[in-house]
Structure formats: structure tokens, C-alpha cells
């Protein structure tokens, strides 16, 4: 288990270096490391290398790191959400987060609101939309007996349709096609807008969320036995569920605000990891973020190099790669989630 975690960390590090080096201008890993070291330590760069240094440090590094952070975050949130709502088909966007974020971002973009936030206005709108959607779904699915998992899933699905309708109306009345491409970006996701400025907030949120959910590994294990049994084992399911929902909603909102809603990773990586290392969250919550990060770094690399200078939507690549892998693994290992 520890060996697997170390191996995946090494793979992640290597993937990040390779991904930073690849693109229209190919830069060898050795040089990449030298540029990164120069940037971190304040070392000297020859005048003929300035352009390549700029590409590595200003453009590719934040983008690749953002991909790693978001990949790790989506995978971990997916694991937690599936355990919380006790549903194999749940993903980080179950609470209508992705369409809520799109509504927020597009509304800000079209109306020109939040102008005081400058270049972060649209991200702030997306974050607000994501949190608003989560809160709405959460409140709508609450009952005297606490949050009922199935009701939450159904409410999330219903709300997503509602937000889609709002989006359609905005696009219909928007004066230009900019709103349409904005909606496309927020619903398909991408790291094209990555900058050093956008990275710290989401990185801190994701790392804190990872640290917190790992503390709840055993509680999440216990939840899978049912709420009443969890209570008989000293775990208050309602309290755990409420706290972790708020945490995952904030983390998902922060990720969506910088990269849009990248589908599939949060749904499939948790399952793939459970197939590989078993269902125990103490293991899954270590391995899933690493797998998610590695996957996302490579998917982003493919998205920006295959048909450069255009970029393929990330969601299309995650699905193309992930679906066959998932189906093969599932069939070979006789994987079961909640029954036959």
C-alpha cells in the first residue's frame, strides 16, 4: 500500500515534468527542471533562453499544476460524495454544481456584474453559482429525519435540469455568441485560463479538503453499513454527512471556478481505485487523489497537443480514455457496488 502510494507520487512528479516540457515548443525534462529551479531559486537564465523559460514558468507550470490539483480534488470529492449519498452513480456535480456554476459565470459575464473583482469576476460568479446550487439542493432535500441520500440525488438531478433551462434562456437572449462559448467552457471544463494568480486559492482549498476527508476515513467506511448501524457504532451519520457536504461543496465550487466542470473523473476514478485497492477509505483516499492527478495531467496534455493550437474538450478525452478502462476492470474483477 505504502509502496503503491510512493510509486504513484513518483509517476505524478514525472508526469508533471514531462507535461511541462511538451507542447508546441518541446523542452527536455532536464531543461525543464533547470528552468523550474531557476524560477524557484532566483537563478540566472541566458538571454537566448528567456522565451523558453517564460513558456515553462509562466504558461505551462501553473496549467499543469492546476490540472494535478483539480484531478486530485475531483477524485477525492467523488469518493466522498459516493459514500455520503450511498450511490454508485454520484459524482462531485451531483448537487447541480456544474450547471449552477455555469449560470453564475454566464450571468456575471453577460451582465457585467462583480466588475470590482476584475479578472476574477467570472470565477467568483461561478463559485457563487456552485455554492448557491449546492445550498438549494441541500435545503430542498432536507427532512425531519435529516438528509435522505436518495432524495438528495433526485433533487440534484432535478435542479440540474432547472439550471440548464436558465442557461438556455440566457443564451437565447444574449446579444452575441460569447455567452454560448462561455457556457461551453463551464460545462465541459478546461485549464486554458490557468495562471499563477488562480492557483493558490484552489490548491489550498483542495489540500485542506483532502486532509480533512482523510480524517473521516473510518467514519465513511461505517456509513456504508447504513445510518442506523453507523449510529450503533458511535458515528452520527447526519453530522458526518452535513459537515462533509459543506466541505465537498466548497471544494467543488473552488475547482469549478477555475477550470469549469470536468466530468467523469470524479465518477470513475473512485470506482477504478476501489477495484484496485479495495473499498476501505483509508486506502482509497490516498490512492484516488494521486490517480486523479496523474490522469488529469495527461488528459490536459493530450487536449492541448493533439490538435494544437486548438484544444479538445477535457470531458471528451476523460470519457474516451476512461470508459474502456473502467469497463474492462469492472468486468474482470467482478466489481460490485451495493449489490449485484
Amino acid at each position: 500500500m505504502r509502496a503503491l502510494a510512493i510509486a504513484l507520487s513518483v509517476v505524478l512528479l514525472a508526469s508533471v515534468l514531462v507535461a511541462i516540457g511538451l507542447g508546441p515548443a518541446v523542452i527536455a525534462p532536464v531543461e525543464t527542471v533547470r528552468y523550474l529551479w531557476a524560477a524557484v531559486s532566483g537563478g540566472e537564465i541566458g538571454p537566448d533562453e528567456v522565451t523558453r523559460y517564460q513558456i515553462v514558468w509562466q504558461i505551462r507550470t501553473p496549467r499543469v499544476l492546476l490540472a494535478a490539483v483539480v484531478g486530485a480534488g475531483l477524485a477525492a470529492v467523488g469518493v466522498v460524495v459516493q459514500a455520503l449519498v450511498r450511490n454508485a452513480l454520484a459524482d462531485p456535480f451531483i448537487l447541480g454544481v456544474s450547471s449552477g456554476a455555469s449560470v453564475g459565470a454566464v450571468a456575471v459575464g453577460v451582465s457585467g456584474g462583480l466588475a470590482g473583482l476584475g479578472i476574477y469576476a467570472v470565477s467568483a460568479g461561478a463559485f457563487a453559482g456552485a455554492l448557491g446550487a449546492s445550498a438549494l439542493v441541500y435545503v430542498a432535500s432536507r427532512s425531519a429525519a435529516g438528509i435522505m441520500p436518495l432524495r438528495l440525488v433526485l433533487t440534484g438531478v432535478a435542479m440540474a435540469f432547472g439550471f440548464q433551462a436558465v442557461l438556455s434562456v440566457i443564451i437565447y437572449f444574449a446579444p452575441d455568441s460569447e455567452a454560448t462559448s462561455a457556457v461551453l467552457f463551464w460545462t465541459m471544463g478546461g485549464f486554458g485560463a490557468a495562471t499563477w494568480g488562480a492557483l493558490p486559492v484552489v490548491a489550498v482549498v483542495v489540500l485542506v479538503a483532502l486532509a480533512v476527508v482523510r480524517r473521516y476515513s473510518r467514519a465513511l467506511d461505517v456509513l456504508s453499513l447504513g445510518d442506523e448501524t453507523a449510529g450503533s457504532l458511535g458515528v452520527d451519520a447526519a453530522v458526518v454527512r452535513r459537515g462533509l457536504f459543506v466541505l465537498t461543496a466548497v471544494a467543488t465550487g473552488a475547482m469549478v471556478a477555475v477550470s469549469g466542470a470536468i466530468g467523469f473523473v470524479g465518477l470513475v476514478v473512485p470506482h477504478v481505485v476501489r477495484i484496485l485497492v479495495g473499498a476501505g477509505h483509508a486506502r482509497v483516499l490516498v490512492v484516488a487523489p494521486l490517480v486523479g492527478a496523474v490522469l488529469m495531467v495527461w488528459v490536459d496534455l493530450v487536449s492541448r497537443t493533439v490538435v494544437a493550437p486548438r484544444e479538445l474538450p477535457l470531458g471528451a478525452i476523460t470519457a474516451l480514455v476512461g470508459v474502456p478502462v473502467f469497463v474492462v476492470l469492472m468486468r474482470r474483477r467482478g466489481y460490485l457496488f451495493g449489490g449485484r
Partner: peptide, 17 residues
């Protein structure tokens, strides 16, 4: 929970433990 253990009517386990 340290003193009372229960077998509830929940006879299902969600995950592949």
C-alpha cells in the same frame, strides 16, 4: 456504542468490503 452493539434491520453493505 462501546457498551451496546446492535444488529439492525439494515442488512445491506454499500461498498465492496
Amino acid at each position: 456504542a462501546r457498551r451496546i452493539a446492535a444488529l439492525t434491520q439494515e442488512n445491506s453493505v454499500d461498498l465492496d468490503f
